[in-house]
Amino acid sequence: MKLVAKAGEVPGQPASRSLRFPARPGRWLQSIGPVAVLVVLALAFQLASHNFLSPGNLAAIAEAVAVPVILATGLSFVILLGAIDLSLEGVMATSSMTVALLAANNVNGHHWGIWAIVAALGVGVVFGAFNGVLNTYFRMPSLIVTLGSWFIGLGIASVLFPSQVPGIRDPIVLGLASTQFAGLSLIVFIAVAVLAIFHLVLNYTHLGRMIYAVGGGEATLVATGLRVPLFKLAAFMISGFLAALAGLLLSAQLGDGNADIGNGLLFPAVSACVLGGTLLSGGRGGAIQSAIGAVILEVLNNGLIQIGAGPYVRNIISGAVIVTVVAISGLHLRRKLRIVK
């Protein structure tokens, strides 16, 4: 703990560094703010449509938010470092194509079964390792490295794409989406499990604490002689792994492989992290916070359809709510920042 506390004293970083979230009024606003917004939004939509809090609609939200939660969880690891992972959509595209072409399908003779799932997830780990190695050992900015691997991922998916959309026929893969417990698909439970596991990893393991510490003050940490690159590498690999999992689960839901499967999911994932209170500058936030951000975004999407807002107005309202939430919940934090980029 000593180490971590020291890292917090780096100039330009918020002063408080303890990981136990001490009870301070400002901190309280930061962590409770997004939850309060969520409650207010839910109540407002319920008042407007009377159907929003029905079990059917809550289940629809849970199904829709499962994948964004997984993406935001993975992305949190990288953002906590103060880095960014833009490759999510590319990783999802490649993992979707991989599982669709290796599991039993209607375009080729492969039927790898469970190994197709392993291969698809492995794709994500490889991408993560690639990003991590270039970022840490070759000292390239994560923004550029992951931008590159985003396009590499899309490119590989395009090359793999057969002449027609590959339909998945494998019962194990399809079972990920079609198996239901208590009216919710297995995907929802996987998302909850992922969130729980990686929340624990972040808060109760050496790796997790080091990720916070790197984000808080990498320079100091490097000076202590800790193997910082290894922690960063692990964060990128976790992000890649979870992006691949997201691609796999979406493919299972849709029942086919799709190179556009991640299209438009990167920026909502980044927004989810920021909305939940994870700082892009690193060192503060967490998986649960980012997941709450993802839920807020989906509640907005769903609620605006529920109240019958037109497709064009939806974007305006979503944007306005996001800006407002960040403005209110992060006010106390930004006061402490000397500069905002």
Partner: peptide, 14 residues
Amino acid sequence: AASFAVAAVTSMAT
């Protein structure tokens, strides 16, 4: 897992 996945990807370029 990584080397495994790379092998898988290259084996199915169609």
